[in-house]
């Protein structure tokens, strides 16, 4: 009925009013397009300037070239820094994911004395500004005469990644249907089997998401790393230090490549997930 009325009235509405109505209806979509533009301007800028034939200082557009992409390690130190970031990222992700998942299961699956205190201990590192985390760890290392460097950085990254892993995995555990586990138990699976064949596979996407989050937090971290890495260079540190004299275009290549790699990973993951659901 209402559809009929609408169809009948559309031609009689003047164009201006129709445009107005269209804008009113799509205002939020237009807004979202603007927000995405804002998000992607610097990404696009970084990508465009990765093709700049700029030499040492990549400030002004000179000429188009593929040579930065052909030789991403061309600038001194850049690949060394990237390698360090990847190594630190993998180690921090590995340990933070294991420790964090265990905590998430304890808090998400058990009722025990000190549960709310445990929640608080997980919340605190997230509520602590990075600079305080970094500075406090460095001062501890100094007391014990441990030189800042590779392992202190890994430890620092585990500290701030654990909480994010706990929160992510816990959310996944909370969304599980408890009847699935009960069904497994009813079918004579013991506790361990139930965990291995029902609970863990169901929580696995949450753990994978948490690991991805931990890696990207670690890979991109600058403040805490700056405090605890000493003379070791990581990729963000390399950029910060070279900012003063101009960042080589190779850094833009690596940044853009990471962007497309992560995007591809996430999209492939979603497609695999969708196929599984079907």
């Amino acid at each position: 009925m209402s559809q009929k009325i609408k169809d009948a009235t559309i031609p009689t509405i003047p164009l201006g009013a129709r445009i107005q109505r269209w804008i009113g209806r799509n205002l939020i979509r237009i807004y979202a397009i603007f927000a995405f533009t804002y998000l992607f301007i610097p990404v696009a800028y970084t990508f465009v300037f990765s093709f700049n034939d700029a030499g040492k200082s990549n400030l002004i557009w000179q000429a188009f070239t593929f040579k930065n992409w052909q030789n991403p390690c061309g600038a001194p130190e850049v690949c060394n820094a990237l390698g360090n970031s990847i190594k630190i990222g993998f180690l921090a992700t590995f340990f933070a994911t294991i420790l964090g998942t265990m905590i998430a299961f304890a808090i998400g699956r058990h009722n025990f004395k000190g549960r709310s205190a445990s929640n608080l201990l997980i919340f605190l590192p997230m509520a602590t500004p990075e600079i305080v985390l970094g500075a406090s760890l460095l001062s501890l290392f100094l007391v014990f005469k441990i030189n800042p460097g590779f392992w202190p950085t890994v430890i620092a990254h585990i500290v701030f990644c654990i909480s994010f892993v706990v929160v992510t995995v816990k959310a996944r555990i909370a969304s599980l249907d408890p009847r699935l586990e009960q069904a497994a138990m009813d079918l004579y699976a013991n506790e361990f089997e139930t965990f291995r064949r029902v609970t863990l596979p169901l929580v696995a996407p949450g753990i994978a998401g948490a690991a991805l989050l931990a890696f990207s937090l670690s890979f991109d971290d600058f403040i805490i790393t700056n405090f605890n890495s000493g003379t070791l260079t990581t990729f963000p540190k390399f950029i910060y230090v070279s900012a003063a004299r101009g960042i080589p275009a190779q850094a833009n290549v690596i940044g853009s490549a990471m962007f497309f790699l992560a995007l591809a990973l996430v999209i492939v993951g979603q497609l695999v997930n969708r196929r599984k659901v079907r």
């Binding site: 995405f36 992607f40 962007f259």
Partner: peptide, 28 residues
């Protein structure tokens, strides 16, 4: 897809993006 796009800029180092803003808003 849109949700992924919100997180995607994250993967270009935030320092690179901040410096990109500096150059976009800068004199050049």
């Amino acid at each position: 897809l849109l949700l992924v796009l919100v997180v995607a800029p994250f993967f270009t180092s935030f320092l690179l993006r901040t410096i990109a803003w500096k150059q976009i808003l800068g004199e050049e």
